[in-house]
C-alpha cells in the first residue's frame, strides 16, 4: 500500500535530518515507527505526506491509495464546529452525505462527544481534541492511516476504543503506520517495527526479528530490544 525509500530529507537545503530510510506498509498491516526524541520520526512522516521541499527518494502510495493523517498536535480551524470539521473533510474528499454522516455520528457516540458536536474544538480539552482527529481519520475510511503519537492525552477507555477501531480497520484491509513512544502497547498491537536513531534506520522487522538483531533472548520485550539496539549504536 505504501512504499517509502527516502535517500535524504530535511527542512533546509544541504541540511538533511534523515537519511536512507526504507520500509513498506502492506494492506492490513500495522507498522510501528519507533525512535527516541529527535530520531527523525516526525520528519519521516512529513516527508511521506509531501510537506517537505528538501528531500530525495521515493514515496509511493499504490493504485490511487487514499490516506488520512492523525497529527501529534491536533489542528483545527478556530471558527468551525466539530461537525463542520467533519463536513469539510467529507466534502474535500467528495464523500456523499449518506456515506459519511451516519459513520460520523457513530464515531462521535463511540468517542462520547455527542454533547459537543456543535461546539468549537478550539474550546476542547487535549484528549477531546485528539478524539476529533481520530474521528476525522476513521470517518474517511482511507486505505492508509498515518498516525503520529495517538495515545497522547487519551484516557484509558479512549485508548482501548481507539485500539479496537484500529483492529477493525486492519480487518478491512487498511494499512497503518503508527509512530509512538508507548512501547508496551506497540508490542501488543504492531505486526512489524521500524526503529530510527539519529535520522537513520537502526533496525526493522517483526518482534522476533528485532530480538535477533539485538541479540536478546526469545522472551525479551520490545523495550529491551530497542534499548539494546540503541546502546549498541552508541
Amino acid at each position: 500500500m505504501l512504499k517509502v525509500a527516502i535517500e535524504e530529507a530535511g527542512y533546509e537545503k544541504r541540511e538533511s535530518k534523515i537519511r536512507e530510510i526504507a520500509f513498506e506498509v502492506k494492506s492490513g498491516e500495522l507498522l510501528g515507527l519507533l525512535g527516541s526524541n529527535g530520531a527523525g520520526k516526525s520528519t519521516t512522516i512529513k516527508t511521506i505526506l509531501g510537506l517537505l521541499k528538501e528531500w530525495k527518494g521515493n514515496v509511493t502510495f499504490e493504485n490511487e491509495t487514499r490516506y488520512a493523517y492523525v497529527p501529534e498536535q491536533p489542528v483545527f480551524y478556530d471558527s468551525l464546529t466539530l461537525w463542520e470539521h467533519l463536513e469539510l473533510a467529507a466534502a474535500a474528499t467528495s464523500l456523499a452525505d449518506e456515506s459519511w454522516q451516519e459513520r460520523a455520528q457513530d464515531l462521535i457516540r463511540y468517542f462520547q462527544l455527542e454533547n459537543v458536536v456543535h461546539h468549537l474544538p478550539s474550546s476542547f480539552s487535549k484528549g477531546m481534541r485528539q478524539k476529533v482527529m481520530l474521528i476525522t481519520a476513521f470517518m474517511l475510511q482511507p486505505d492508509v492511516y498515518i498516525i503520529d503519537e495517538p495515545f497522547l492525552g487519551l484516557d484509558p477507555r479512549a485508548t482501548k476504543d481507539f485500539l479496537k477501531l484500529i483492529e477493525k480497520e486492519r480487518a478491512r484491509g487498511a494499512a497503518i503506520l503508527m509512530c509512538t513512544h508507548v512501547l508496551d502497547t506497540a508490542e501488543r498491537v504492531c505486526d512489524r517495527f521500524v526503529l530510527l536513531s539519529n535520522g537513520t534506520l537502526l533496525a526493522k522487522g517483526s518482534l522476533q526479528e528485532m530480538r535477533e538483531q539485538s541479540g536478546l533472548e526469545i522472551d525479551s520485550s520490545l523495550l529491551d530490544c530497542v534499548d539494546t539496539l540503541m546502546e549498541q549504536r552508541i
Binding site: 505526506l49 510537506l51 487514499r66 490516506y67 488520512a68 493523517y69 492523525v70 497529527p71 489542528v75 483545527f76 480551524y77 470539521h85 469539510l88 473533510a89 466534502a91 474535500a92 474528499t93 467528495s94 482527529m133 476525522t136 481519520a137 474517511l140 482511507p142
Partner: peptide
C-alpha cells in the same frame, strides 16, 4: 488560508473539487 490550513493537510483533496 482556508484550503491550505493545517486541518486540510490531514487528508487528500479532490483536485477538481479544489
Amino acid at each position: 488560508e482556508f484550503s491550505e490550513g493545517s486541518y486540510s493537510q490531514l487528508f487528500q483533496w479532490e483536485t477538481s473539487l479544489h
